[in-house]
Design a protein around this nucleic acid. Structure first.
Lengths: 201, 201
DNA sequence: GGAACACTTCGACCGCCGTCGAACTGTTTG
DNA sequence: CAAACAGTTCGACGGCGGTCGAAGTGTTCC
């Protein structure tokens, strides 16, 4: 299902967790609307995508975090073949609804250190997240770093907070995330990242 | 690459981490030797498999843990479609070189509990593992349980120990693992698994 | 109402690729 | 050396599926 180039392009375009119209997906994948329509129907039937109609448009998005995770795992296999295209995404990107890339891995490691109080300081309410239906903590192996980053309800809550604080901003039509100056200082301070961390970006 | 049924069958057959000859893989996949030869060459070129010649035979095995991880992530997407075939593997199975399934997830959770001394009692030397080139701890999301189990160097060391102790034995030609009576008692005792855990198997 | 637009259905085309039979290379065994 | 066997190469076949043009449905907006 993911093996077809056109379908793969459409799924990759949705890897930032946002939704897009059929037309836009068709254009980005370089195929006509009819062909895209057939592909999208297959992807929905295979439970990879879901859609929601608004007016005369159909907006598609990933069916869930598992889909993003599978795509990340597959990307890891092909990472040698596509070094150029991937370079942009290595430092910080969305993986569905949470943060991935070098920054995501680094923050995860800091979070896992014992006796850290970052979560509390960020105002993340663990008990509330624990009561949600969704698993609190999932690891998602990073295809650029080959080390885990935080997914699940906690991962989504963290990324939302980073964006709310404007430490990270999303790049239009891309999974890429850029760190604002305020973000650099906040991450460096709260997560004890060394001074050289952001200069290697 | 994994989309072709014959190639998928061969890769799945190797998911237990062992190696098999081209002929055996061809037979299991239900194709002729010529066809298998072409597929195997492609899989090797794509860095999914590696091989090693012994005499007139070529023995193939997975190229690494990432491959197993990607296959597991993909299996999760299709888990609704193949409930029958998967039933056998749900409780305990190999995922390349480490333990997966309900048992793998349960043991992982016990290991992650703070202040646990199971690792030390099992004689697993963390400092030695940490110095190895391979990442110590990797999460691998379980496609049957949708929760993480331990992969990486630690996961491999644990499974090796379980097998050495004969708590788990591998089933011929399958990823399935069966728990011995000694294993049931050892796991229940050391990992504080409830009395009902093994009866639901 | 009518034009513009998003999406779908249908049908036809075409090319890629999985498949096998036949024949070939190289190794093992007696 | 001959026979058996693992694996490979070549060539031919066949079908699945991705592709688009044309035409159809439904919605929005003036």
């Amino acid at each position: 299902m993911l093996a077809d180039p056109s379908r793969a392009a459409m799924v990759l375009a949705l890897m930032d967790g946002r939704s897009r119209s059929a037309k836009k997906l068709a254009l980005d994948a370089g195929i006509t609307a009819q062909t895209a329509s057939a592909h999208l129907r297959k992807l929905v039937n295979a439970n990879l995508l879901v859609w929601q109609g608004r007016g005369r448009c159909k907006y598609f998005s990933l069916a869930g975090s598992e889909v993003a995770q599978a795509v990340e795992a597959l990307s890891e296999l092909g990472v040698k073949q596509i070094p150029a295209a991937a370079r942009d995404l290595r430092f910080a990107r969305c993986c569905y609804d949470h943060l991935a890339g070098r920054l995501g891995v680094a923050l995860t490691e800091r979070l896992l250190q014992p006796r850290n109080t970052v979560l509390r300081e960020l105002g993340i309410d663990l008990t509330a997240l624990e009561s949600s239906r969704r698993p609190l903590f999932r690891c998602c192996t990073d295809w650029t770093e080959r080390r885990p980053h935080v997914a699940g309800a906690l991962g989504a809550a963290l990324l939302r907070r980073y964006k709310d604080e404007r430490w990270l901003v999303a790049v239009e039509d891309s999974r890429k995330l850029v760190v604002t100056p305020a973000g650099k200082s906040a991450f460096a301070h709260r997560f004890a990242l060394g001074p050289g961390f952001f200069t290697q970006e």
